[in-house]
Nucleic acid binder design. Structure first.
Lengths: 227, 227
DNA sequence: ATCCCGACTTGATTTCGATCAATCAGAGAA
DNA sequence: TTCTCTGATTGATCGAAATCAAGTCGGGAT
């Protein structure tokens, strides 16, 4: 946890647009800004570990944070990937519980931290914060359900195709874009080994998908939609 | 939706012990009781479908409700299984959104329904309700993360073993108990085909697990813990 | 430019679980 | 009791992806 500091102009700006603060009234925003602490994380830094007492709520300002669970022999399963504006650790907002997974910066990241006890205090006084938390959690739950179903219903190439389609906004036409993060991260997010992601990409070449480095070009989104 | 009615003595009792109402102040409890409508569902009845506008929050009083997602060709993936005291559809508490999955009574069930608009009104006035919703959602998110990691890290027999261990409260000693629902439901919850669950059970016979109908006997929980 | 190292790819093998198909068991109803 | 229907089991086959093991690529530093 390097370089703790109060939020500056830029950080306040980003926080205001984050999922949590965007819908709050001015007074609640002020209260949250008051308790925000900004931190700069190097890649691979751990934010918290599964089982530790949960005392902080985190909000990503830039970069990506990977949240995963471990099994007894040390294998990791990514459970969620958080980017700018996302709230981390909301699954423990409640009682003085414990983190249910481990969070690690996947690349250099800027994050805001809020003391959970104080967040709870504010939420108990101000319904708008409590409701905003409810919204954030709802969205995350829906995403988690989608991942679960995605894992169980679709093959690796299908999952990759769906990810690509979700990331090229244009409708019918060819599209190009840059992957937002490393392929190994993407593999984890999709519940795949990196090798499987690689093979999925090469299979998708047959469907008009070209990948070079992080650059992706899609010739025919419609074809992609059909597996 | 058969036999809509106001909550009677028994239903009020159950609702008071449910995850949502248990932590509320008396006035919020009264407000929620006021808008509760009780319904009796036959097995296989659909509560709501993926994509429909979400206008109700549901709470299970008895029985089990299965929530699943469909893929284009009609295959189903169970995403969560709700039992007595559980809140359903909390993933859409927020804006006037749409249900993100389909809910179906897995067996005859008694449920309470709350009009979402009115729930939102109450939550905006009473922080204790908003906070209680936050708690319920947190718990569900943690469960969803656990399922996701469980799917990705463990084989079928391991998932079954973990389920059994979580359901026999006693620690070191042999234990017997009754499965809370049909095996096919359990299979869905664990992300398995029924055949795979069957095979997992027979493999676990070698680890001291005996199953006859819904009755399960575990000779040595410690052995089970080691796969 | 060249070197180097981490990220990615490709190949070979193996394991796991889905699927299809055929019984089998058990609870209700007549 | 017997019939029936649904759920559960067992067997055989197949396909998808993990794993292990070499390579190859690419970008940054010198």
């Amino acid at each position: 946890m390097n370089r703790l500091m109060k939020p500056g102009i830029r950080e306040r700006e980003t926080l205001l647009n984050s999922g949590l603060l965007a819908a709050l009234g001015v007074e609640s925003v002020a209260a949250m800004m008051e308790i925000a602490v900004i931190g700069n994380l190097p890649a691979r830094q751990i934010l918290f570990r599964e089982g530790e007492p949960a005392d902080l709520l985190h909000c990503v300002l830039s970069g990506y944070v990977r949240v995963y669970k471990l099994d007894p022999d040390g294998r990791e399963a990514d459970v969620e990937l958080y980017g700018p504006g996302d709230l981390i650790g909301a699954s423990v907002v409640l009682d003085g519980g414990r983190y249910t997974a481990t969070a690690q910066a996947a690349e250099p990241a800027l994050i805001a931290r809020f003391d959970l006890k104080r967040v709870r205090d504010i939420a108990n006084r101000r319904p708008d914060l409590a409701v905003a938390l409810t919204h954030a959690l709802s969205a995350q739950l829906a995403k988690a359900f989608a991942s679960l179903a995605n894992d169980r219903l679709h093959t690796a190439p299908q999952r990759v195709a769906r990810f690509l389609l979700a990331h090229c906004i244009v409708e019918g036409k060819p599209a190009s874009f840059r992957l937002p993060y490393q392929k190994s991260l993407l593999a984890g997010k999709l519940g795949l080994a990196p090798e499987a992601l690689s093979r999925a990409f090469s299979m998708l070449r047959g469907y008009g998908v070209n990948v070079r480095g992080r650059l992706v070009h899609i010739n025919d989104p419609e074809a992609l939609r059909r597996v």
